[in-house]
Simulated assay, not measured.
Amino acid sequence: MTVSDPVVEEVVATISRSATEIRQGLIGRRGTVDGENPSGETQAEADVWADELLGDRLASIDGVGQYASEERPDVVDCGDDPATSDAYAVAVDPLDGSSNLKSNNAMGTIFGVYDAALPARGETLVAAGYVLYGPITTLVIATDETVAEYELSGGERRLVERDVTVPEEPVVYGFGGRVPDWPDDFRAYAREIERELKLRYGGALIGDVNQVLTYGGTFGYPALESRPAGKLRLQFEGNPIGYVVEQAGGRSSDGERSLLAVEPDELHDRSPLHVGNDELIDRLEAALA
């Protein structure tokens, strides 16, 4: 399957070609650097390296006017302003779950292509997706036409499934944050879900969301007592993941509304994140109302 928009296709192709290189480049880059990202988190050496690699390549694409990364404080202007032209803005989490490097567990790359200047609502996305560095390196890409999954090898991508949808019968769940830090209303909802579904939680957003797309169910990183705005970044994680799941027939929510309807104030705004089967997200919003 080829994405119909040539600029979006070049973004996807660039990320696909870079994925094998990123995965191989993780070797020898498992340590941390003497610095923090804009969210105050310690950066892995691999975070910085993957951001520089993707930033250089994506910013050079004709039709990409802005590049933004979870690892950089500001938007990088790299062409025409998306607010006044046909150029797109690309937002990337270069290495989601990089804390898993030490234990050699799954991680990924998340990206969103916005038809608007950043920060932007998720409703302005024209494509979004992620690479999962699991036992097999895979790419999931969502457009307004479909959600497709590919296997990546040697810089090439092979179509595995053309029309990915969230299975109707939910099987798995995963919830982030420390349980004592969960608000009471979310804790009550979580206790219900625990009695119905199987726990699958790996500490990397991409791996946990991919479980939901594969088996059906729900993943959530809720608002916490100590962090009411949640942990995950709207532009780099919430919007792209929400877009993928919604295009696959599921729902996304910040606890009240679709993640794609949330109005951002700042590039690095955080948001609670919940995705999954419609019925489970409906129950979540009812529990938190």
Score class of each variant (00 low, 15 high):
7 V>D: 00
8 V>Q: 03
11 V>F: 01
11 V>I: 05
16 S>M: 01
17 R>K: 06
19 A>M: 07
19 A>P: 02
20 T>I: 02
23 R>S: 14
23 R>Q: 11
26 L>H: 08
36 E>G: 12
37 N>H: 12
38 P>Q: 08
38 P>N: 08
38 P>K: 10
39 S>V: 15
39 S>P: 08
44 A>F: 13
45 E>C: 03
48 V>A: 01
48 V>Q: 02
51 D>P: 04
53 L>Y: 01
57 R>V: 00
65 G>V: 11
68 A>T: 13
72 R>C: 00
73 P>K: 11
74 D>W: 06
88 Y>C: 14
89 A>F: 12
90 V>L: 12
93 D>M: 14
93 D>K: 05
93 D>S: 08
94 P>I: 04
95 L>M: 13
103 S>N: 14
103 S>T: 15
103 S>G: 10
109 T>N: 02
110 I>K: 00
115 D>G: 05
118 L>G: 04
118 L>Y: 02
118 L>W: 07
119 P>Q: 08
119 P>C: 08
126 V>I: 04
126 V>D: 05
128 A>I: 05
130 Y>A: 03
132 L>D: 07
136 I>D: 15
146 T>I: 10
152 L>M: 11
152 L>H: 06
159 L>H: 09
161 E>F: 06
162 R>Q: 09
173 Y>T: 00
176 G>Q: 05
177 G>F: 07
180 P>V: 13
180 P>Q: 14
182 W>Q: 08
184 D>L: 10
185 D>F: 06
186 F>C: 04
186 F>M: 08
187 R>W: 12
194 E>D: 07
199 L>W: 15
208 D>C: 04
211 Q>I: 05
212 V>C: 11
213 L>C: 11
213 L>R: 06
216 G>I: 13
216 G>D: 02
217 G>V: 02
218 T>E: 11
219 F>R: 11
219 F>A: 14
222 P>R: 14
222 P>D: 15
224 L>E: 12
229 A>I: 13
231 K>Y: 12
236 F>K: 08
238 G>A: 06
239 N>Q: 04
242 G>E: 03
243 Y>G: 00
248 A>K: 10
249 G>K: 07
249 G>F: 10
251 R>L: 01
259 L>H: 05
267 L>N: 09
267 L>F: 10
269 D>H: 04
269 D>F: 10
269 D>N: 09
270 R>L: 09
276 G>L: 01
278 D>E: 09
282 D>H: 13
283 R>T: 06
284 L>K: 04
284 L>T: 00
284 L>N: 01
